[in-house]
Design a binder for these strands. Sequence first.
DNA 1: GTGCTTGCAAATCGTTTGCAATAGC
DNA 2: GCTATTGCAAACGATTTGCAAGCAC
Lengths: 137, 137
Amino acid sequence: MKSLSFLLNFNMKPSHQRLAIMEYLLDHCCSHPTATQIYNALSPSMPTLTRTTVYKTLKLLADHKAILMLTIDEDSTRFDVDNSPHAHFFCKRCTHIYDLPLPPGIKYVEGQKMNGHEVAETHLYYKGTCRECLAKK
Amino acid sequence: MKSLSFLLNFNMKPSHQRLAIMEYLLDHCCSHPTATQIYNALSPSMPTLTRTTVYKTLKLLADHKAILMLTIDEDSTRFDVDNSPHAHFFCKRCTHIYDLPLPPGIKYVEGQKMNGHEVAETHLYYKGTCRECLAKK
DNA sequence: GTGCTTGCAAATCGTTTGCAATAGC
DNA sequence: GCTATTGCAAACGATTTGCAAGCAC
């Protein structure tokens, strides 16, 4: 019941829907799912769930800094429960997102100023073709 | 007529429309415009220009690696003519994008392998509130 | 009952597509 | 004339909105 404590930690009421979404995120942290993927996965076992609720929940979680919104994919927003500093590799062919260790030398800035700008998030992205897709052809 | 040589360099036919779009990009490199901003700016003096053409041209330029597509803004794709390695700061309040020098230690990977993945682009993004918006309130 | 959460239907907006018209060599 | 480029209208898909209904304490 990790999802329960997760929601409580962030002062969010643990509704049925939120628990399910949170649990999905925790179970699929490595795939960095889209809102639609979450909806499609949960919908069969939760017929009343709507896309709207999924979007609202994800937005709320992101506002509470419980999850991270990744804008690496131009087609749709991806979500990441892992908030430890790490980089991402986005495959342009299959749209899979891989986690990568942070290269030495780069600092993840948060809550500090940079050139007068207040930094809330740092993102390091690589884009290209992943090893799976390279192997295919 | 920088835009002309720019297009020729990338083996693209220098049509009237492409020249105008390229020129706009070169003149507004620091604002990292959206397709719609480009369209709105050029439309008055080029009444026949359509959004479609702007999108197609930008996609073509990006495919030829003449410009960079930035996915930092969740609302719309931004375009950058400056292909020298640098970081970006995205203001969540005013959506302005600032160029930032690359911090020491980080390498911009291109054309190399990383964990078996073939990297085509590296992106370093910071998000938060910019100094202009901080000063306002 | 009060207030937050959800569901619904519709709208919005960026972007893409198929195809016909056009322009330039 | 041939081929690439453009324009148009329509489609598409992700995301948001306003509002009414539902749920929980």
